[in-house]
Structure formats: structure tokens, C-alpha cells
Amino acid sequence: MSFLSIKNIHHTYFSEKSATEALDNISLDIEEGEFVSFLGPSGCGKTTLLSIIAGLFPPTSGNIQLDNKPIHGDKDFFIGYMLQQDYLFPWKTIEENITLGLKLLKQDDPESKSKALKLLKDFGLEDIEKQFPKQLSGGMRQRAALARTLAVNPKILLLDEPFSALDYQTKLKLEDLVSETLKVFGKTAVLVTHDIGESIAMSDRIYLFAAKPGRIHKAFPVPGELRSLSPFEARSHPLYSDLFQTIWKELESLETIGEH
């Protein structure tokens, strides 16, 4: 059985006026150490699926197993979740922010703490432990948020458009950093994005989602040549443009279906 197994997930949002079907029969498997992207237009339910995997709320029906254990109600299950913005707590110092997860999970022994602080150094953030998030630049803050996420040693990393609020140069640099870090730690990751290029450059497999209701339209494996490269190098490889064109056309066809 796969590392992360998602079976027949349906999800419907209810409000007084309507019931909106957000996800329709989603099934997919992710192997350990794999990097998978959910790509699609807004409203295709990709963030909903990520939140369900994160255990933020249960799906209307269907089940998810990580490492052969159901996600809900598993206390040892640590996930790393990164959002569009860093969401570092502005009233906590960087050190307090980084060790927050450890504190909440009651693992704040000196050894884990020093490991967490070492992550900061690995990410090129030195001597800022006592500073407040406001004193850091956007890229530095997102790197600190990555350190906070990895500090609890999560089994799986969920990335919800974590690069979308950054300027282009910072975004490219951070993509390389995340990709390299995940390889070093051998982490499984799921990235939600609407950026075709980003999904090709970073992942091993891409799921293209269609909207209304959210469903998987097609899966694209990323060629091995691209996977072995860093995201920045992958962007200048000829295969990158080929795959980009393929996915672009597929997205266009989705839109025309939607219009009729």
C-alpha cells in the first residue's frame, strides 16, 4: 500500500442558501519521498483537498490513510503545512516562532530546540533568533516559516501556494531551497499551485484539477531528466517547455468546456 492513500474523497460545503460540491470522487496514491503537485484554476478544490489531508476538517465521505493509519484521530501524526504567507506570529521572536510547534507537541527538549535553530542556519538565517518577524524581509520570513514547519519533523509537507506572495527572484531561490531540503530529508510533499511552471520545476507528478465540481482531470508524470535537476535548472531544460505546452493546452481545453 502507498505512503499516502486517498480513496473516493467527496466534499460538500454547506451554507444556508446552497450546498456546493467542492470535491467529487478523488482517489490518488503518493509514495514516500515523492513530490506531487495539485495544479488547477481557482475554485477547483485543490486547497480543500490539501486541508483535508492536513486533517483541518474531515471530508464528507471517503478516507485517507498515511502510513497505513487513518489521518483523523492519530496523535503521532505530524504534518507540516505552509501557507501563502509566512504567518509567523508577530509578537513572538523568531526563536519562539520556530520552536512553537515543538512546544505545542510537548517535544521542546533542548536537543530538538537546538536542531530547530540549526535549521535556521542551514537556511542562511543567522543571528536573527531574538528578532521579531517584522524586522525580516519577505523571503527571510518565508524561510523562517519553512524552518518552523520542518522543526516538528513532519511525515509529510503540505505546501499551499507558499511562493505566490513573493517577488519572482525570491520565489525562484526559495523553490530551490525547498526542493533541496526535501531531498536531503527524504520528505514526501504535496504542493498546491496555479503556476504551471512551478509545478513542473518542482514535482515528480502533477495532478491537473478541473473545477465545478473539483475533480482530477489528468495526471502528468514529470520526466526523470527534469526531476534530477534543481527547479531553477529545470526551467531552462527543453523538456520543461514541452511539458508546459502540453499542460497549457489541457488547461485551455478545460476552460472551453467550462464556457459551454
Binding site: 483541518l56 503545512y81 501557507l83 504567518y87 510547534g101 505545542l104 507537541l105 516538528v152
Partner: peptide, 14 residues
């Protein structure tokens, strides 16, 4: 309070 702060805490099992 921005619900995303709570989301961060929730993923840490708060």
C-alpha cells in the same frame, strides 16, 4: 484574529 494563525496552530495539534 486572522484564522490562518489558528490554522498554523491546528496543524501542530493545538
Amino acid at each position: 484574529v486572522d484564522p490562518n494563525y489558528l490554522k498554523v496552530l491546528q496543524t501542530f495539534g493545538a
